[in-house]
Design a protein around this nucleic acid. Structure first.
Lengths: 149, 149
DNA sequence: TTCAATCGAATTGTACACAATTATTTTAGG
DNA sequence: CCTAAAATAATTGTGTACAATTCGATTGAA
């Protein structure tokens, strides 16, 4: 009969979070060659994604969509501004709000960006059922974390 | 009949990678209060995990386990050394290898660390079947990424 | 009305994460 | 034996992440 290891839970192969953490990093690495063509990092890419959808938002709203805070977004948005893809202006109605607006150049980038999801899809060896499963599991966890406090 | 949006693939809610990225970050954030008690960051914690298992490794081997390179590990290992949990010495047989050894203090930390997985488990609203599913999906993806090139 | 509480963004400080480069050591081919 | 190639860490530079703090603007209760 096998001895029970009281520290088995501390082995990397028994962890559920570690493969999640590692997988996330590897996925972002996979994006790199495709995003390099657009001169975007992964975080800049998903930021553009919310702006392609909404056209105008403040920093707080973007942060809520992406689970990021102003400490991450402020320098990132300045970068996107310097590339000419967005503008940053204070709201007239409430000076606390910094309005982020997409520019025509930012809109144009969308044309080239549509290629990325297709290219990434080829790197994923998941059938539609598995992909849906993964998607639902991730959002279930995100919801749990969000509603807990 | 609904119009087909050629840019639908660029919407955040149609992305499979984004919830993975967001979930990974949120999980690491969940660890923080528990790891703060051990004065460890998440990356330091998983590094200790491989050393609790193997006692002695070089930087390359640790990096292979954790999917990290020396640019990340070198400063992190110096930090763990300064905390007294590991030692860093060049191998006598091959001076290129930096041998990382766990100290008695590092071993002792294991006693307090066993509490962490149990505490984290309570934050996860997944039944065993879902957890297994997630685990297998993550390793399937990691394997794909690894064997592709 | 007024001022304390709140809010949104920016800043600061610490810690990854990784590509690219460098330095040192070892190995192997001629 | 000697030198070119390979291997291993460390370093450098850029870009996140996030907690904590600060700052200015706004709001709401006395």
């Amino acid at each position: 009969m096998a001895e029970i290891d009281p520290y088995a839970c501390l082995k990397l192969e028994n962890q559920i979070c570690f493969p999640l953490y590692a997988c996330s990093k590897e996925v972002v690495r996979k994006y790199k060659p495709f995003l390099d063509e657009l001169d975007l990092t992964y975080t800049q890419y998903i930021t553009m994604m919310v702006l392609w959808d909404k056209k105008q938002m403040n920093v707080k709203e973007i942060g809520k969509c992406l689970y990021l805070d102003s400490g991450t977004l402020t320098p990132l948005l300045k970068k996107l501004e310097s590339k000419g893809y967005i503008t940053r202006h204070r709201s007239k109605e409430d000076e606390r709000n910094l309005l982020i607006k997409i520019t025509p150049e930012g809109e144009a980038l969308k044309e080239r960006a549509v290629a990325v999801p297709a290219q990434m899809g080829k790197c994923f060896d998941l059938d539609p059922k598995e992909a849906k499963l993964l998607y639902d599991l991730m959002y279930k966890l995100l919801d749990t974390f969000h509603t807990e406090e």
